[in-house]
């Protein structure tokens, strides 16, 4: 059975990637199971999705503990332990990263001798996450060596059936770009077997101690903890206010902001708390004077670095 995990941020299309790959396997005669896995259903939060494919009915469910292939659409997730990107990688696993950093560097950073492959992000991909998902699906399909181009294209068409023709065409191109880019590694990802019932590692079950209520109640012993969680890290798009165009109405953007992260300064200009703005862009949609623009978070970070340089 093939066991494949896709990691990305909410909004980058990893559920779609898993479904394109799942459908492509299904159209190629495989039994298939695909599913997304997420907690907070928010744009930018780490999510993963997985695909199982084999010749017999699939009885396994839930987490893939020992993946044959892990595809990571957003390289900033590697450093976040909670994202679990590297979990269960074994000697025969393949790690495919969408990144501008060379594979050798990743191998060094991760201190691994396992196979690490890289794909450059598609041009302007952050503006169109759908292309990122198609790219990842196409790349994964080629790595298995079990899926032909025609099945991949049909899978894209099926998955995006409700979208306009130009979106479908762009995704077909994206999937094929991933498919062709990995031609050199076609078939590199193999199937793995199930854990055998003789000679398995027994689980180290314990008897839970009966803790006092002070410890055992689900309470955080501190106030205002949500402030400490920098949900702004989830952002893939950043709203930027053009103060020239802002009429200082003082309420529209801040009132519509679902996270309450737009305040007003002493001169009555709106100020976005980027530590907690998740980049939903509702402010952009609501601003009556169109004073709010969207830039990609990558562009935003580059601008931040440039600004810090100027200050220094």
């Amino acid at each position: 059975m093939y066991r494949i995990r896709f990691h990305g941020r909410g909004g980058q299309g990893m559920k779609t990637a898993s479904r394109i790959l799942g459908s492509a396997f299904f159209l190629s005669g495989f039994e298939v199971q695909d599913a997304p896995r997420y907690g907070a259903e928010r744009r930018g939060a780490p999510i993963f999705a997985f695909v199982r494919a084999g010749r017999a009915a699939i009885l396994e469910r839930g987490n893939i503990d020992r993946p044959d292939l892990v595809v990571v659409a957003d390289d900033t997730l590697v450093a976040i332990p909670g994202a679990g990107v590297l979990a269960g990688l074994h000697a025969d696993s393949v790690l495919l990263l969408v990144t501008t950093v060379p594979a050798d560097d990743w191998q060094q950073r991760l201190n691994t001798t396992g196979t690490v492959l890289t794909l450059p992000p598609p041009g302007g991909s952050e503006r169109d996450p759908a292309l990122l998902s198609a790219l990842c699906a196409g790349a994964a399909a080629r790595l298995t060596g079990a899926i032909e181009r025609e099945a991949l294209i049909r899978a894209v068409d099926e998955e995006l059936a409700l979208y306009p023709a130009d979106t479908i065409a762009a995704n077909r191109a994206g999937a094929l770009a991933g498919f062709d880019a990995l031609a050199v590694a076609a078939g590199r990802v193999g199937e793995s077997g199930a854990v055998a019932a003789d000679g398995y590692d027994a689980p180290d079950w314990i008897d839970l101690p009966a803790d006092g209520v002070g410890l055992a109640a689900p309470t955080i012993h501190a106030g205002a903890t949500s402030v400490e969680v920098r949900t702004g890290l989830w952002r893939t798009m950043r709203p930027v206010i053009d103060l020239e165009k802002c009429h200082r109405c003082t309420w529209v953007c801040g009132t519509f902001c679902p996270d309450g992260v737009i305040g007003v300064d002493a001169e009555r200009y709106p100020v976005i708390d980027y530590d907690h703005c998740k980049g939903c862009m509702i402010c952009l949609a609501q601003c009556p004077t169109h004073a709010i623009a969207a830039i990609t978070e990558r562009q935003g970070r580059e601008a931040d670095i440039a600004a810090e340089g100027e200050q220094a």
């Binding site: 799942g22 039994e31 298939v32 599913a35």
Partner: peptide, 10 residues
């Protein structure tokens, strides 16, 4: 939930 609700199977 999840293991069936969001999981695609044939």
């Amino acid at each position: 939930g999840f293991h069936l609700s969001f999981t695609r199977e044939p």
